[in-house]
Design a protein around this nucleic acid. Structure first.
Lengths: 193, 193
DNA sequence: AAATTTGTACCGACCGGTCTGTTTGACTAT
DNA sequence: ATAGTCAAACAGACCGGTCGGTACAAATTT
C-alpha cells in the first residue's frame, strides 16, 4: 500500500513527532509505532531517517500557504488589522501544545549534522512563504489606516513575523503565551502610529 | 589538593560546545577531548552530563549582566540610541560563529527530557536579566528623544529583545545576519516616532 | 509463479557512565 | 631533609543499552 495519501499522512505525523520530540529523541521505531508501520515498510518507503525528515518538511511546506490563508480568513473578523492580530494570537495560544512547526524545525537544527544546511534553507523558505502569505493583509490594514503607511508592507510583515518568532522562543521557555501576546499587541500598537 | 583543570573554564567551553552542537550530538568524550580532560576526571568533577549542562548554564548566567554592560559601554558611542543599535548589531554580526548562548540553549530544549523545565526556567531568567541590563539605556534613549516616550522603557526593552530573538532564529537559518540587522534597524526606526 | 511489500530478528556503531588501578601532593613521623 | 601514609584526583579500558539500518523470510499482490 504505497498510496500517496497514506504517505502524506505518515509524513505529517512524523513531522509532528519531530517537532515535539526533536530529531535525536525520536526513534524510527517510534515513528513506525505511531504510524502503524513496521520498520521494513518504513525502510522500503523511505531512504533513511534524514530523508524522511526532509520529505516531511517539504511536504509540509507545500500546504503551508493554503493553511495560513485559511487561518487568516477563518477568524471571522472583517477588518484586516483584527484578522492579523487574531491570526498571531491564535498561533501563540496553540503553542506549545500544538507547536509551530517552522520554529520547531529550526530549533532542531543544532541537532542535525549533514542536513543542517538543507533544513536551514527550508526554514528560510518557510519564512518567505509566511511573509508572502501575510503581506496582503498587512497592506490592507495599511490602506484601512490601521497600520502606518511609512513602511513598505513587505518590510513591515518581515518585522512582525520576526517578532513573532521571538515571542515563540520566549513562549517556549515560559510555557505560556501570555507575555508573547502582550509583546505582539505592543508591536501592533507601535506600528499603528 | 587543587584540581588540574579550571572548573569555570571547562564549563564555559562545554557550554560553547553544547550551543553549537546541541545536547545529543555532543558526547562526553568530545567535551573531554576539547577541554583536555579524561573521562575519569570529568566524572570525578561532575555528576553527569545533565548536571554539567545545568552548572554551565548557571555559571554563564552569573557573568551575563556584567558582560552585557561591558558590551553596551564598549561600543564607543556617546548617545544611548547608538550604543543600543551597536550592541544589537554586534550581537547579530557575531552570530552564528560565536553564537548567542541563551537562544541556543533554548533551541536545545526539544532534545532534553527531564531537565527541560529547568532549562526553560534558566532561559526565562536570562531574558529577564537581559531586559534588566538593557532597560536603563533604553530609558536614556527615550530621554534623549531618540525613542518614543509613549511606551514604558520596560515594555519597549521587552519588545526590542523579543524581536532580537526572532532575528536570531532567522539568522541561524540564513547563516547571515544581514536580514536581521535590517529588521532591527526598522524596529528602532519605528520606535523613534 | 513472479514481483512486491511487510514483519522481525539481528548487526554494529555509538555513547553515557562505571570500575579499577595509578598518580599526586599535603601531612606526619623519623 | 627523607621516607612513609593516605585520600583526593586522575587515566582510560570497558560495559550495557540504545538506535539507525540491514537481511531475509513470510505474506500479499499482480
Amino acid at each position: 500500500m504505497n498510496q500517496k495519501h497514506d504517505r502524506e499522512k505518515v509524513l505529517r505525523s512524523g513531522l509532528h513527532l519531530f517537532c515535539s520530540k526533536g530529531y535525536n529523541n525520536l526513534g524510527v521505531d517510534e515513528i513506525c509505532k505511531t504510524t502503524g508501520m513496521t520498520k521494513g515498510a518504513f525502510y522500503h518507503a523511505f531512504e533513511d531517517k534524514e530523508n524522511f525528515l526532509l520529505e516531511a518538511i517539504s511536504t509540509y511546506g507545500q500546504n503551508q500557504v493554503r493553511y495560513i490563508h485559511g487561518k487568516l480568513d477563518s477568524t471571522g473578523e472583517v477588518k484586516a488589522i483584527d484578522r492579523l492580530k487574531n491570526f498571531y494570537l491564535r498561533m501563540l495560544e496553540y503553542q506549545p501544545e500544538v507547536n509551530y512547526m517552522g520554529c520547531m524545525i529550526n530549533n532542531m537544527m543544532s541537532e542535525l549534522g549533514a542536513i543542517n544546511e538543507l533544513v536551514g534553507k527550508a526554514t528560510s523558505i518557510e519564512f518567505a512563504r509566511f511573509v508572502e502569505a501575510i503581506e496582503p493583509t498587512v497592506k490592507e490594514a495599511q490602506q484601512d489606516g490601521d497600520l502606518t503607511p511609512h513602511i513598505s508592507s513587505e518590510k513591515m510583515t518581515e518585522l512582525i513575523h520576526t517578532t513573532f518568532y521571538g515571542t515563540l522562543t520566549r513562549a517556549k521557555s515560559l510555557s505560556s503565551a501570555e507575555k508573547g501576546i502582550e509583546t505582539m499587541h505592543l508591536l501592533f500598537q507601535t506600528l499603528s502610529r
